[in-house]
């Protein structure tokens, strides 16, 4: 039984709480133990590096330092948490000057930048594997057409060797195929949803997220699948942002696994765009 240090990040405790519930259920089925990092703090997300680079590293380093003491791999399901932690971990391990500066600030904690940071796609690949995923599915999802949506910051990490291609990633495609869904090819895997402009420049978010939704509809998909809480939220908020009609449900990757393993969604009530139509397509094997 694998044990991972689980770093939920702020979103998974509030606006995307149902993502956490879903991850926990699926990981428990596969025998992955999630040990939540004790007294974790915010990674700084997009705000910290805009305002102050040092602050961004300090916020990420505090968590990494505490996780290093545990020695397990660090599981960050949120794309922003993953991205920020990965950058700081890498920089601190390579840049002695930065390491000393940051460690002085977070003392008595000490961050060495030695931890292995994993996103949810890597966790499913590395700790379960597509063979086992395909073998153990309990429900037939072959009637559900999905488009995999990776979003920006999961693979776009300048200066860091990324786990998948920055222009055309395929790791989530493979997982969705193994889970038994019908994969649809589409060109918007990596398009930006409008990111953190949801409040400060709503029109931009509406325009970009609508484009993604319309493309998904054009391909005939039944749902969009993502692993990023901000992408999920922006797309799911489309009815409130100004796109009242023609919206497909936006599921988290772990929710597709929930469908394949348990035939239902524990967080269906948290979705703004209704998921019932898609869930009805699940068949008993």
């Amino acid at each position: 039984m694998a044990t991972l240090t689980y770093y939920p990040g702020c979103s998974l405790k509030t606006s995307s709480k149902f993502y956490e519930t879903s991850i926990k259920e699926v990981c428990s089925f596969y025998g992955i133990r999630l040990k939540e990092l004790s007294d974790w703090s915010c990674c700084g997300a997009s705000a910290a590096h805009t305002v102050d680079e040092t602050l961004a590293h300090v916020l990420a380093a505090r968590n990494i330092a505490m996780a290093e003491a545990d020695g397990n791999h660090f599981f960050a399901p949120c794309s922003a948490c993953y991205n920020r932690s990965k950058i700081t971990n890498e920089k601190i391990s390579k840049d002695k000057e930065l390491r000393e500066e940051i460690n002085k600030l977070i003392s008595p904690l000490q961050c060495l930048g030695t931890i292995e940071i994993k996103n949810i796609i890597e966790v499913f690949h590395d700790y379960v594997g597509i063979e086992r995923i395909a073998r153990e599915i309990q429900y037939d999802l072959s009637a559900i057409k999905v488009v995999p949506y990776y979003g920006c910051v999961l693979t776009r990490i300048p200066g860091v060797k990324t786990f998948d291609d920055v222009e055309d990633p395929v790791s989530m495609d493979t997982l969705l195929w193994a889970a038994g869904t019908k994969l649809v090819k589409w060109p918007f895997k990596m398009e930006c949803c409008g990111a953190g402009k949801t409040l400060t420049n709503k029109d931009t978010t509406l325009r970009l997220s609508s484009k993604i939704m319309d493309m998904a509809l054009t391909t005939g998909a039944d749902m969009i699948v993502t692993s990023c809480p901000l992408c999920q939220m922006n797309l799911d908020l489309l009815p409130y942002l100004g796109k009242a009609e023609d919206n497909l449900p936006v599921l988290f990757l772990s929710e597709v696994f929930e469908l394949a393993l348990f035939g239902r969604l524990s967080g269906s009530g948290s979705h703004i765009i209704p998921v019932d139509g898609a869930v009805k397509k699940v068949k008993k094997k």
Binding site: S15, A45, A47, T50, V51, L55, L199
Partner: peptide, 26 residues
């Protein structure tokens, strides 16, 4: 000024609580 303003409230919330309190920042 909006982006910086929002990011400052975001970080202010993290400074106070250690974690982002979305409702407070918004």
């Amino acid at each position: 000024k909006d982006t910086w303003l929002f990011d400052s409230f975001f970080l202010d919330s993290v400074r106070k609580h250690g974690k982002l309190h979305e409702l407070e920042a918004i």
